[in-house]
Write a protein that binds this DNA or RNA. Sequence first.
DNA 1: CAGTGAGCGAGCTTCCGCTTGACTT
Length: 799
Amino acid sequence: MIENLVIVESPAKARTIERFLGRGYMVKSSFGHIRDLKKKDLGVDVEHDFQPQYEVTADKKTLVKELKQLAKGSVTVWLASDEDREGEAIAWHLFEALELKPDSVKRIVFHEITKEAILHAIKHPRAIDQHLVDAQQARRVLDRLVGFKISPVLWKKIKSSLSAGRVQSVAVRLIVEREREINRFEEQKYYKVSGIFIAQDAGETPLPVKAELSERFASRDETVQFLEHCKEATFTVNDVETKPATRKPAPPFTTSTLQQEASRKLGFSVSQTMSLAQKLYENGHITYMRTDSVNLSQLAINNAKKVIVETLGEKYLHARQYTTQSKGAQEAHEAIRPTYMEKESISGDMKEQQLYSMIYKRTLASQMADAKLERTIVTIAVSGQSRTFVATGEVVLFDGFLRMYRESLDDEKEDEQMEMLPVLHAGDRLQRKRIEALEQYTAHPPRYTEASLVKKLEALGIGRPSTYAPTITTIQNRDYVSRESRMGKEREIEQFILTGDQVTRKPLIRHFGTEKRKLFPSDVGIVVTDFLCEHFADIMDYNFTAKAEEALDDVAEGKLQWQSMIRDFYAPFHANVEKTLKESERNTGERVLGTDPSTGAVVCVRIGRFGPIVQMGEGEQVRYAGLLKGQLMETITLEEALDLLKFPRVLGEYEEKQVIVAIGRFGPYIKHDQLYVALKKGADDPAIISLDTAIKRIKEKREIDSNRRIQEFENGACILSGRFGPYITYNKSNYKIPKTQDANLLTFEETMEIIEKGGELKVKTTSKAAPKKEKTTKATRGNVVKATKTTQKKPTKTK
DNA sequence: CAGTGAGCGAGCTTCCGCTTGACTT
């Protein structure tokens, strides 16, 4: 007989708490929610006041059985899930599913995992807050209704298997709208002028003064004219302005800010950051990693203080409490911080160490003194000109928290390194060393990175710490958006340099607008977004969630009944769903590009069953072609479309079989007698490739294939060496070879036995791997896009 | 270092939040 059964959400938490409570207490974990709306169907009885239909989640069946058993045998059950909407609901679902008795159940909450906090909680139990539970039910039902009512509309009107939701659809909309802004953006050419000067009589090794002209030039003539003028001009310090400045440390990490900094500083994807943080948490190095709070416990602040005073001294200390500003924050946990402030580093792999170190420094820095700076602005007059040069310098008078940690900026351009300036006074004469003008182009608004999208979502109050990373991967899995790096436009620009009495022109090659690991919308993403904005404007509104949250707050405070909130939402929503189903046209985003000059056939783009396609003509004469990576239906031109339609193209014959060039899902390839060969990226152009080159590629491919072939049997079964070691291929399916067997020695009988036993790896079809499987690998190792990544990489890999 | 087409029959797909799974496919 157990005296007390305590149930928390996370197993790591359970272990710690059990240590604190000791004898008479057994601490178990629910692993999050244990029940949810029915997996199949709507799961909400809209006819009967939105009665939710709950069931124990498939993977929680045995756990619930076990907990029920334990609860039966204990005197008191303590429901210690988190103190927020979801946590309260978990407590209630446990109460229901475990069939607990009201008088032997106590609901407790604690904000930090310390012995004191837990003992205090045990002394102050309360009842389950039904209003808060109802708010969660309303949230859950709302999301189910939105998702499960709108998605089928998309299947009917656009393409099967698509999805829509309160969070994901808005996330995609942000990306689509940014892309449109970029398409509309008209870049402007300008010339940026900068100069290097030296103070006269400044001694042997004078500190150079680097300054920038306060005005940009729009035209080349103006620029050159100015440089010519500078030849004879004199340069005088006009004004020296010195201002003190202070800089404050950033607050401790939340999930969102951790993801942003890890992306900027360490180049981690959001899911990578989360799985690393999970490991740190499980190993007891950091506090819980899914939080929206910047709050630190008193214990943590005290320990941080101690570390700062001991290592840096009293003057570096400035203890502070931060308050959370983000919308809809529920603050069930602390900020993300080291469990032990005195641990500067931890064991673990390189990436874990990097992430830990960042958390450690940020946490300590948050309790450190402001940095004191002195900013100097020097204005330099040019004789015979109203334009001035401006030099800015910064001196750190006291580094304060900067000694520990410097937050990085979203802006990709490294914030201009502030330079040291020599001591200057108004009226000082400066000697010109070099003045240069560089041709530049105004930059379009940046595309979102995964992390900057999270930041935006958080600012809009959309999504929760536990869903940021999954949401980002969902919209990529659905092929609404993709994360890509694209080289910018290569351009020849010019630079004019004035040194001595000479203005020289120098041509340069530069890339403009290179994007690294940015989110690009797909055609499907764009068409779906447009469709949803047209027919479900309220749900696509950036304020939809914020407004819903207001109503949910009313429910939580008992001012509004949850069914009544849902009823108000559902009536017009449902009518709209029906109307859209009935009245709207099938929407494939079709766009007519023009006609084929030779045949007069109409050329258009649209979403086909398998994605975006170019179509030419109709009926018997119809031809199709897929779009290339980077091409969008919205921006593709008639010429580009016609180019795509030139394929497949017959190059000629080789060994009495046709050699064909075509463009497939993975780029251009050669087809010859059952053999497919990818073109060499960079070297081969599918539009002009010769038969000879194609034959060469075929021979190369044969060579490679023969090396991959370990064994081949009469019936076509084959043992090949692949990326993950040897495997069997037979009838278009692949099979795994048990570790106990040697691929080189497998007999025909053994091979067929493996095939018959199953153990199939992945069906070789054009369809993608089963999404369920993807999901598991995803969460596991942060390999979120590993599969796609390798396919993308492949062409570039051939040196 | 695997895989490379496309308007039809049939049946499936889908949400957001809590939590960690573990045949390296």
